[in-house]
């Protein structure tokens, strides 16, 4: 900024942000004295900053979730987060806080989205409305189903018993899922509401994650990685109800 060129919007911003030296500031102030439009801009930018603070400062007062404190070597951080009662309660409920943090690593969100959450939600949307053929193998042949799935996936993943929650196993099916095979177990409540558990191997390298939640429309997904497998529980349920089921599934599988 100098006498050779006019004051522009960048200068006005620098004035608002107090980035100018005394000489430059005096130049801008002289200009503001003469130019009403520039005065208006400066006022608006200042009000904008205040409004941005008003909008986002409340985030600073939120309790820090204990899920941010799960890494080995950060036990102090966990203590720090103890104020986050809700998150701690959730974590404890999932058996998360009690787990050895050594195994806990961050998995690739990208892989989880592409290989787990989306195919699980998609498979749920395709098969749960089916009346006559919702599953490939019905619960009546559960031992066969378990053997078959174990053979194809190379690991035994028994369908967890969710009867205490009022959900009966309908059966299961094998599915293609991007580059791997996946299993889908379907459960049904007396009133016809269905939930599905989706599991597959993935490129997450034995990492383990906390429960994560995603939602699209009415469909909620709790998903997590445990060892070589990723799991996703999908249903048109409230977040809390889906969480209770997920906890049950996690305990049974773990």
């Amino acid at each position: 900024m100098s006498d050779e060129r006019p004051i522009n919007d960048i200068d006005l911003n620098a004035y608002v942000d107090d980035e100018l030296d005394p000489v430059q500031r005096a130049e801008v102030e002289a200009h503001l004295h003469e130019d009403a439009a520039s005065r208006e801009s400066v006022q608006r930018y200042r009000r904008l900053d205040q409004a941005i603070h008003e909008l986002y400062d409340p985030i600073l007062d939120e309790p820090v979730p204990s899920t941010l404190a799960r890494r080995r070597g950060w036990p102090w951080l966990r203590q720090h987060a103890a104020a986050a009662m809700v998150w701690l309660a959730v974590g404890a409920m999932l058996g998360w806080v009690a787990r050895s943090p050594d195994t806990v690593q961050v998995a690739s969100r990208q892989t989880e989205q592409l290989d787990l959450v989306r195919p699980a939600a998609f498979a749920h949307a395709i098969y749960t409305p089916e009346v006559r053929h919702p599953v490939e193998v019905t619960a009546q042949h559960e031992p066969d189903l378990i053997r078959w799935i174990a053979k194809r996936l190379g690991a035994e993943i028994k369908p967890p018993d969710l009867s205490v929650h009022g959900y009966a196993l309908v059966g299961g099916r094998l599915l293609p899922s991007t580059d791997r095979m996946a299993v889908q177990y379907m459960y049904e409540r007396k009133d016809g509401v269905r939930v599905t558990l989706y599991a597959r191997r993935g490129a997450w390298n034995n990492e383990a994650t906390a429960f994560k939640y995603a939602r699209e429309g009415n469909t909620g997904v709790f998903y997590w990685i445990d060892g070589p497998f990723g799991y996703a529980l999908v249903g048109e349920l409230s977040k809390n109800e889906l969480l209770r089921l997920s906890e049950s599934v996690y305990r049974t599988l773990g």
Partner: peptide, 29 residues
């Protein structure tokens, strides 16, 4: 500084709390 990181991530990810906290955690690690 964690609350500051959370705020930064939240604005960056347009209010997606879960993704924002994932980013914060990656950052802390």
């Amino acid at each position: 500084l964690i609350p500051r990181l959370r705020r930064y991530a939240r604005v960056l990810l347009r209010g997606d709390t879960i993704a924002a906290d994932d980013l914060v955690q990656d950052c802390l690690e």
